[in-house]
Amino acid sequence: MKFIGFQNAKSLILISLALTSLSGCVTSTIQAVREANTGMQTDDAIVVLGRRSRPTNSETELDFVSCVAKGVTNGANGLSVVSEGDFMDAMFPWFEPRTAPANTQDLPELLTQPLLAARLEEIGLRYVVWVEGSTQRTESGGSMTCSITAGGGGCFGFLSWENDSNYEASIWDIKTGTTAGRVASEAVGTSYMPAIVVPIPIIARVRKQACTSLSTQLKTFLRGDA
């Protein structure tokens, strides 16, 4: 293997940094199932929660939940979103992993409690969006070797990996105590990292795409446009 000097390596690193904006292809699909009419009034708010019931080991990532919440808030037709942490504290202890309602059948009983109903009214909460799912690496291949010597260093090889994001959001209508519908988002993409001296990552932003698709569709769904 031929090694390069420090100055040349520096130039190549700068080039590779510029190339990091390259991104791999992502294929995404979105599906929505409506079970009831939806709509948002001016003062209505929603909360996006990740399912954390026990003892599953495939919890939805915290940053995915906050990405969806942010995505639903942003844009011209953005919705008012209560943060997951604020909601959990405001409704404590009714939405903890031990106590969170498993399905909408548990909602009416919960809402008969005056304190809880008053707190929900105070927050202005209309819909609870439960997000389940995760991003998994489904395939990986290739190899890469890197070496460092006194005169410089470098890598040689090729890596590739495929990520698959699968998420489903269940929308609960707090006013009616029923499921308003479900929105599912799937995204698949392969990332590559060729290296001739300097590795050049070409990343498929699978989870980001799944988040964007899901939040865009949720906005449309909750406003009753789809």
Partner: peptide
């Protein structure tokens, strides 16, 4: 923190 909250939740309910 989650364990402490779980203790509080169980105690409260």
């Amino acid at each position: 923190r989650a364990a402490c909250r779980d203790a509080m939740a169980f105690f409260a309910l």
